[in-house]
Design a protein around this nucleic acid. Structure first.
Lengths: 336, 336
DNA sequence: GATGCGTCTGCAACCGCTTTCAACTAAATG
DNA sequence: CATTTAGTTGAAAGCGGTTGCAGACGCATC
């Protein structure tokens, strides 16, 4: 570990060249005599030189940092994406700087402003609530990738999973196992994910000629607590159901607990499926059948795409597949 | 949302003063005529001026960013601390930039170097493995706070929880409930936390005049999988035990699952206690008795302390208490 | 009225790097 | 041998702030 009070000038002197030349070999954006180049590199090495980012940023206008707006550090799915983003940027020379939008539109705009103040070269938005207009404005201003939701007109700057088909598959799985009274605990309904998942659920029912029973549709907010509340209200209303499709895994945990508290067994009496496949879901009791979102990959893909974008290229982003993980929280209904 | 191609010069012209004056009111480090001040502020406001961090950084030497080294984004406990850190810095003018050490000493040194290259004004290390010597070096170079472990000689730059007494309390809780054959699944034993927790466990046993049975001491690595493995090996050896104290909650989940697979009920047949109290633990089955680490608070405290440190002050850091959360994974042993 | 002393402000020199532009060298061409 | 030409290089002008220093001004003091 070395401290760096060494500037480009020191290198220049040491290598007997001008600052310009040093800068050139460091950024190799012009032809430099291989021998000179060697000398400079040696000087850099032996002095342990590291360029001052401020000076570089000021002069070049590029900061080599990118802003990443997450919604809630500590939320399993967003954390996976963050991991992916970090992974995707390692070795590219860009450093991500993370800020938290706290699921709040104004906070989000604020932190983006801060980020722009820090002159980030690009932006990755993980989820988020800001309006299409603001989004469009943003895109005009700097390379931006949105992760975890699809935005109209942003086809090539968006990486998201196909929530619809994920939910469809999950619901269909329940149907195939003989379930017909399938409740759903939805997420926050102004979130796109929540809407798409609900649509997938509805479509699967409809395709199986099962009427969607509004009494089986509960609203939640992606928290375990909301899963508990939803199940309790379902139970209180005396509504009969054999399965619950949950907005995400946390909700599923809550739902399972609420059921157990009433002496209802999972999956013997009621089946449950979640969404996300967070790390714990393989180990809870019973191991949770859920839809796996490839969070880490999404992060990686987003980072790589942004790098391309920042370098003036374009990119084509795949729609990520959400895959059903069959575990043990769903059981077959024996038709009477 | 406004773009900022506006420089201090624009403000100066608009307000009919010199750049210096603008700079002065912006940093208020000299007396400026209230009226002039007002004019400048107005200009700033109406033009939506935001200082260029590079220019400022270059000129002043301060970057107003701090580096935060975490070990693994996505790991519940570290995430909590990150949240806390973000929270602690909001409104201070400093932005944290997060990097991931990946639980790897060399990676960790690398990322710290990167951070120093970015001229961070201070450093927060969440956990980490780097040697005391490197740590001491680091401290000489810049304000540093270590979170999640206690380092000799760093009493006032360390925020950590009392793992020993947390583990002691947890073990003691089991003992009070009549358990005498208490297994432990330890963490990675070159981690301080793991060591301290084991010591707490051992002490509690000893204070209750229970001999520590080496056969009941299993090694794990903080993962759910290692919990499964440990329990299986315990079972295979036919060792009798009525309780398991786990290195953390993930291990506890794994342990619970492994027991269930063998038809052993928790808590009726075997009691379990974890460590961390991650979000899911209240909702798993049975809700997990565990030791709560105040991760968020630790992050906040660390951030606040670092700010003080960077401003040339000193700080006194409290040892955080780890509190036992009694839930339902521990049952009383009816003495025969 | 000259002097002294705060108060407030502008000038200009950096901070360390990038980047244009011109210049210089040596080899290639006519 | 004069003239291109391509390959290299250095000087210098910024980039947008901060900050030491000197100067201008108003006012009390002598």
């Amino acid at each position: 570990m070395k401290l760096n009070d060494i500037t480009i000038k020191d290198i220049a002197e040491r290598a007997n060249v001008s600052k310009s030349t040093v800068s050139r070999v460091l950024n190799d954006l012009a032809i430099v005599n291989p021998k000179t180049r060697e000398t400079v590199l040696e000087a850099v090495e032996s002095l342990g030189y590291q360029a001052n980012v401020f000076a570089r940023g000021l002069a070049s206008g590029r900061s080599m940092t990118v802003g990443v707006v997450t919604q809630k550090i500590g939320s399993p799915f967003y954390d996976m994406m963050m991991q992916g983003v970090i992974q995707g940027f390692t070795g590219t020379g860009y450093s991500p700087i993370f800020v938290d939008g706290q699921w709040e539109q104004n906070t989000e705009l604020d932190v983006i402003r801060t980020l722009m103040g820090r002159k980030v070269d690009g932006l990755i938005l993980l989820g988020g609530d800001i309006s299409q207009k603001d989004l469009d404005d943003l895109r005009d201003r700097m390379p931006t990738i949105v992760v975890g939701k699809d935005v109209a007109g942003w086809e090539d700057q968006c990486v998201y999973v196909d929530n619809f088909s994920g939910a469809y598959d999950a619901t269909n799985h329940l149907i195939e196992f003989g379930h017909r009274e399938i409740a759903i605990i939805r997420g926050i309904m102004h979130h796109q994910d929540a809407i798409r998942r609900f649509q997938g659920y509805a479509q699967a029912l409809s395709d199986a000629s099962i009427d969607l029973d509004p009494d089986l549709v509960l609203d939640g907010n992606f928290s375990a607590q909301s899963g508990i509340l939803a199940v309790n209200s379902l139970l209180m209303r005396g509504k009969s159901f054999t399965a619950v499709f949950c907005a995400n895994d946390m909700v599923a945990y809550g739902a399972r607990l609420a059921l157990q508290r009433k002496g209802i067994r999972v999956p013997e009496d009621v089946s449950i499926v979640g969404f996300d496949d967070q790390a714990e879901s393989s180990y809870v009791s019973p191991p949770l059948t859920t839809v796996r979102q490839p969070g880490v990959e999404m992060g990686v893909v987003a980072a790589e795409a942004l790098v391309k974008l920042m370098q003036g290229g374009t990119c084509e982003l795949p729609v990520m597949k959400a895959l059903l993980q069959r575990r043990e929280s769903v059981s077959r209904i024996i038709s009477p």
